[in-house]
């Protein structure tokens, strides 16, 4: 196994975290690099996939699922998060919805200069809404996903997981 492979986040790990945290519905819009995770989720009988075509709709859908006693996960890219502000405010924060949003952190880099404005504004956006977030770069960070779920349950608020390694986290 190469160093790069060791340091990556696998879609199997992401799926295992969903199951561990009793996710019933994944409300999602494909990230740039989510295809393998999509195939895994589709094959998982305990999950219902609810595809939306604009990310703001994901938060209101997740609020309805949560109001009905089930456990949604929102799976989107940071670009979509940026367009979701009012829905996130009104439907998730306003209704005390304990939901984890797993956000592909497009453009993020640990090294050098970030050249993608989607990444530039992601954490600023979350901070503006007072939403806590956890950065996940590799399988070693996977426990942070469970921490996010636990925090969402305790605080009855949305909590974000920023998937820094979109390609490996959502693909193979």
């Amino acid at each position: 196994m190469t160093q790069a492979q060791k340091a990556s986040l696998s879609p199997e790990t992401v799926l295992a975290e969903m199951k561990k945290n009793r996710v019933t519905h994944v409300v999602w819009l494909p990230d740039s690099e989510t295809n393998w995770l999509y195939l895994l989720m589709k094959a998982e009988p305990s999950l219902t996939l609810v595809g939306v075509n604009r990310e703001g709709l994901a938060f209101s859908a997740a609020a309805g699922i949560s109001a009905g006693g089930k456990h949604p996960l929102v799976l989107i890219q940071n670009t979509g998060l940026l367009e979701s502000g009012d829905s996130l405010r009104g439907w998730a924060l306003g209704l005390d919805i304990p939901v984890v949003m797993m956000v592909g952190y497009r453009g993020w880099t640990r090294h050098g200069v970030n050249t993608d404005t989607a990444a530039t504004y992601t954490e600023r956006f979350l901070n503006a809404f007072g939403i806590n977030y956890y950065l996940v770069e590799s399988d070693e960070d996977a426990p942070r996903i469970s921490i996010a779920f636990e925090e969402a349950r305790k605080t009855k608020r949305p909590v974000a997981v920023l998937v820094a390694d979109e390609y490996h986290g959502f693909n193979r």
Partner: peptide, 22 residues
């Protein structure tokens, strides 16, 4: 569930989510 208007444009997705959950 008289929620007023949490955020415009989301009523149908909210109610759909509720229908899927129940």
């Amino acid at each position: 569930l008289p929620l007023g208007d949490p955020a415009m444009g989301g009523h149908a997705s909210f109610a759909m989510g509720l229908a899927l959950a129940r």
